[in-house]
């Protein structure tokens, strides 16, 4: 069913299994226990960071398939994306998996873009086993979007730290546990911010737009969700989003509105304004949040993955940063259902 730009799935797909893989810096963070696999080596034994990122996604996918009790041949569709040019991490992972594949690009919003589309395929009866995933690697992202990793440029306090990690989930129509019940597709919002070291402020309005649309489309109360998490707005963007929502008359309870980018690292890790990257929302959702939902600590969660749709070329040509956010509702059994 569609209301505005929100889908409410008639037969909400189940998340059969999910997995999160991280790097050495993530291993020092507070969510370390929620990762399936943590690497001590930023290279993962590969000879380039790009190959290391591909390896992260491959491992996340393998783990998720394994945990779902399936083999990779059982996967009917693989939906994935990442931040590399021509989404190579995802496409090369699809080469390894050798399953039908749809490549996505939504920058850091790819996690929820993939989950929403995967749920749509399963809900519509067009697939029975869909794998969704995304990845990012701190060094490969720095190389592509900013300066060489060892270059001594001082980053401003608004800059964020790209997560080294990958997350994947398997969707199927039957089972138990957590279901994907709703999804709101984002619009591209551009508030004219040009500073690529200030992604939080650039992306906040996109998150606000999608959250407002979600609540408006479904006519929900502000206490509908146990937790609403934005993807990677960080210390700068998250308070802006919170204030902007309040200004627009949608006052979300403070203890129920958080940000994945503020959860992965400890406060004393030198990440400036927090985490970013595709893996920010993917690792937190597919690891920490789903674990908490399976334990029954959370019943109804809205994940709003935020993405900045810029390229290194576009900002050098003085273009502003267009941003997007996609929201997906996760509900565990015992929640009040979405169908």
């Amino acid at each position: 069913m569609i209301q505005g730009r929100t889908w409410t799935f008639a037969n909400p797909p189940f998340i059969a299994a999910s997995s999160a893989v991280g790097g050495p810096f993530e291993a020092q963070g507070p969510l370390a226990d929620d990762f399936d696999l943590l690497h001590q080596d930023l290279w993962l034994g590969q000879d380039s960071y790009e190959k290391a990122e591909k390896k992260l996604l491959e491992q996340a996918c393998e783990r998720a398939i394994d945990k779902a009790g399936m083999r990779k041949e059982d996967i009917q569709f693989f939906l994935a994306g990442d931040l590399m040019d021509q989404v190579i991490s995802s496409s090369f992972t699809a080469r390894t998996l050798a399953v039908p594949y749809l490549g996505l690009f939504g920058a850091c919003s790819t996690s929820m873009e993939g989950l929403a589309l995967g749920a749509l395929l399963v809900d519509g009866g067009y697939a029975e086993r869909v794998l969704v995933g995304t990845s990012s690697h701190n060094a490969s992202v720095e190389k592509q979007f900013r300066y060489p990793t060892e270059y001594g440029a001082q980053k401003p306090p608004t800059s964020q730290w790209s997560v080294t990690g990958a997350g994947a989930a398997v969707l199927q129509p039957n089972g138990d546990g957590v279901r994907v019940t709703r999804a709101t597709v984002g619009r591209v919002v551009d508030m004219g911010i040009q500073d690529p070291f200030n992604m939080g402020a650039a992306m906040a309005p996109a998150a606000v737009d999608t959250i407002e649309a979600h609540f408006r489309d479904l006519d929900l109360s502000t206490t509908e969700y146990d937790l609403i998490l934005t993807g990677d707005l960080g210390r700068v963007g998250h308070p802006i989003a919170s204030d902007l929502l309040a200004k627009h008359g949608l006052q979300l309870p403070e203890d129920r509105f958080g940000d994945c980018g503020l959860m992965i690292y400890r406060k004393d890790q030198p990440v400036q304004a927090g985490a970013s990257g595709c893996a920010s929302s993917a690792c937190v959702t597919y690891g920490h949040i789903l674990n908490r939902m399976r334990k029954g600590e959370l019943c109804k969660v809205l994940i709003v993955a935020t993405g900045a749709l810029l390229s290194p070329l576009s900002y050098q040509q003085k273009e502003s940063i267009p941003c997007i956010a996609h929201a997906v509702t996760l509900e565990s059994e015992g929640g009040n259902g979405g169908s």
């Binding site: 608004t158 551009d190 508030m191 004219g192 402020a201 210390r235």
Partner: peptide, 14 residues
């Protein structure tokens, strides 16, 4: 709208 937002965001940026 963009100008208004940038002023709004500016006040909240370190």
């Amino acid at each position: 709208t963009q100008q208004e937002y940038q002023n709004f965001a500016n006040k909240r940026e370190p």
